[in-house]
Design a protein around this nucleic acid. Structure first.
Length: 288
DNA sequence: TTCTTTGTTCCGGA
DNA sequence: GTCCGGAACAAAGA
């Protein structure tokens, strides 16, 4: 599931592969992803050059040389494939050989110059692509409500402490709240709370100064580490077989219900509960 | 057929 | 009016 590190890895891959290329053609194979696709808007991208690729929270932004931008959210299962026409077997770290059974989930195909194709593939169709003018980005409903980037200096002790004053929300829900900090999802929030030994149900205003510092430190540490590893939950991006990677080994608590706590000398067991309809995993001993 | 997964939005209660 | 948690929603696979 793409969270901030995975989106960052995708951004870097796109940056290395499609900047300075020109979109020659757009094929919309599915007219509805999360939102209905406005085909006319996509025509604005034809014969335009890609000048940069950026990330904000879990959103990708592909900027074109006519002032238009493609805003993308990968949802649960959104992926980009870059393939070389007529040479399907050729691969680099990001080139991907599409298997026949993946093709039915290809929804939007950008034909680029240099015989390349950029393909948006999404099994669950919870992602979206939207074309708009860059001047309209600041008032876009998705982007305008976002809190600070977790890796930025704005996300610090002072900000955190001030924000949780009187906040009755539990810490799990707070970290999931994109207006507080933008880019964390369920997997990384579970991991961070394990590392800081914080109980996910604790009321935010009750969190101690020491614990706040730990949470902030581990958020930054886990995200950076994951980005460096190429995004823990999309290892398959670099695999040629298109299967799920062994990313589950990377996690201390996520999807480890009933298993032993991995912390040395802790004999706890990983529990699974639901908070706001989201699966929450924590150790019953070290996250009191 | 039912359950699961996610981020976002909506709704009712406090 | 504000805050919060829970439910609903989207699609598809197991």
């Amino acid at each position: 599931m793409p969270e901030l590190p995975e989106v960052e890895v995708v951004k870097r891959s796109l940056k290395n592969n499609i900047v300075n290329l020109t979109i020659k053609k757009v094929s919309i194979l599915t007219n509805k992803l999360r939102y209905t696709i406005d085909e006319k808007k996509f025509n604005k991208t034809i014969n335009k050059k890609i000048i940069s690729v950026k990330r904000r929270s879990k959103y990708l932004l592909i900027f074109l040389n006519n002032g238009f931008v493609i805003l993308i959210h990968l949802g649960m299962t959104g992926k980009f494939f870059i393939v070389k026409k007529n040479k399907p077997k050729q691969k680099t770290s990001f080139y991907y050989e599409i298997k026949a059974n993946d093709v039915k989930h290809n929804h939007i195909i950008f034909t680029l110059n240099k015989n390349l194709k950029l393909i948006y593939n999404d099994v669950r169709k919870f992602g979206f692509l939207k074309v708009m003018h860059k001047d309209d980005l600041s008032k876009n409903a998705h982007l305008s409500k976002l809190g600070p980037e977790p890796l930025s200096k704005k996300f610090n002790f002072t900000y955190f402490k001030k924000y949780i004053f009187n906040k009755k929300k539990n810490i799990k829900n707070l970290l999931m709240d994109q207006s507080f900090v933008s880019g964390l999802g369920n997997i990384y929030v579970n991991e961070v709370l394990f590392l800081s030994k914080t109980n996910p149900k604790i009321i935010s205003y009750n969190i101690s100064t020491i614990e706040i510092k730990k949470i902030i430190r581990y958020i930054k540490e886990v995200l950076v580490k994951s980005i460096d590893k190429g995004g823990s939950s999309i290892k398959n991006f670099n695999n040629s077989d298109g299967r799920e990677g062994e990313f589950q080994q990377e996690f201390n608590v996520y999807a480890r219900e009933g298993q032993k706590c991995l912390k040395l000398d802790c004999r706890g067991t990983i529990k699974k509960i639901f908070t706001s309809n989201r699966s929450t995993f924590y150790c019953n001993r070290c996250q009191k």
